[in-house]
Computed example of a mutant assay.
Amino acid sequence: MNSLAQEIAGFSTSRLRKQSTRVTTASGQVLLETRSGADYHSTPDTERQSADTCGFVQDFSLDLQVGIITPFLLLSSQDAAHDIDTLKKLKVTHVLNVAFGVENAFPELFTYKTVSMLDLPETDITAYFPECFEFITQARQQDGVVLVHCNAGVSRSASVVIGFLMSELKMSFDEAFSVAKTSRPQIQPNPGFLQQLKTYNPA
């Protein structure tokens, strides 16, 4: 039978097996934390660094689903905005890009407007509405079809579309949100945008 001293020795840090843990910091840096006995080391994990960026898990699956809000107004992610077959099938003529850091894919084929905004609750999204709505209205007057997109087609572009329905088509927030949600079920404006839309009072 082992003595108490022998049992304690069995749990000594010098006898622990080497353990490694991957940690992604808020800035997106991937570290490999290694503990061997009483020693502890933290080093950059170059193997995973390129795959994990910005502190977010990347989704590499394509989202080509496009919400048809009205015959002239469409809502999508950047994936659909970069898919020429989707754009042609839906007869898109104008593209409103409200993403940040997303290039316009086919400037020679479509009329683009870029209004870069951040998907942060504290962003005053209503300050961007006038230039966005003007672009959509001009396209409509030219019998065009406008695709509004951000990165994921969930928050910024959805908020712009909901705001347009409220401002130009005189819908209430609930009506506009319902139209957008029915057309593209994955929409979910961030809490700050939702609050701004609920109190938005178009002139």
Rank of each mutant, 00 (worst) to 15 (best):
L4H: 01
L4Q: 10
A5K: 13
Q6N: 08
I8N: 07
S12I: 00
S12Y: 04
T13S: 15
R15S: 13
Q19A: 09
Q19P: 00
Q19T: 11
S20V: 11
T21F: 13
R22I: 08
S27N: 14
S27F: 04
V30H: 05
V30R: 02
R35H: 03
R35S: 12
S36P: 00
S36Y: 07
H41L: 11
S42R: 15
T43L: 14
T43V: 15
T43Q: 13
T43C: 07
P44R: 05
E47S: 12
R48P: 00
Q49R: 02
S50D: 10
A51E: 09
A51V: 15
A51R: 12
A51N: 03
D52T: 11
G55D: 05
D59H: 07
F60I: 03
S61Q: 12
L62E: 13
V66F: 04
L73K: 02
L75K: 08
S76A: 15
S77N: 06
Q78R: 14
D79S: 09
A80K: 03
H82Q: 08
H82R: 11
D83E: 12
D83Q: 10
D85V: 08
D85H: 11
L87D: 04
K88C: 05
K88I: 01
K89N: 10
V92W: 03
T93N: 07
L96I: 04
G101F: 05
A105Q: 14
E108F: 00
Y112M: 07
Y112P: 06
S116D: 04
M117K: 06
L118F: 11
D119E: 10
D119V: 05
L120M: 12
P121N: 05
T123K: 02
D124Y: 03
T126E: 05
A127C: 02
P130W: 10
E131T: 12
E131Y: 00
C132N: 06
C132M: 06
E134D: 11
E134K: 12
I136A: 08
I136R: 08
Q138T: 15
Q138E: 15
A139W: 02
R140I: 00
Q141E: 14
Q141M: 10
G144A: 03
V145C: 07
V145R: 14
H149N: 13
H149R: 08
C150G: 15
A152S: 13
A152Q: 13
G153T: 11
V154L: 03
V154P: 01
V154M: 04
R156A: 05
V161H: 02
I162H: 08
G163Y: 02
M166C: 08
S167W: 10
E168I: 06
L169S: 03
L169C: 12
D174G: 00
A176I: 06
S178E: 15
A180I: 02
A180T: 15
K181V: 01
T182V: 07
P185M: 08
I187P: 10
P191S: 09
P191R: 04
F193T: 02
L194Q: 14
Q195T: 10
Q196P: 07
L197K: 10
K198P: 01
Y200N: 04
P202N: 07
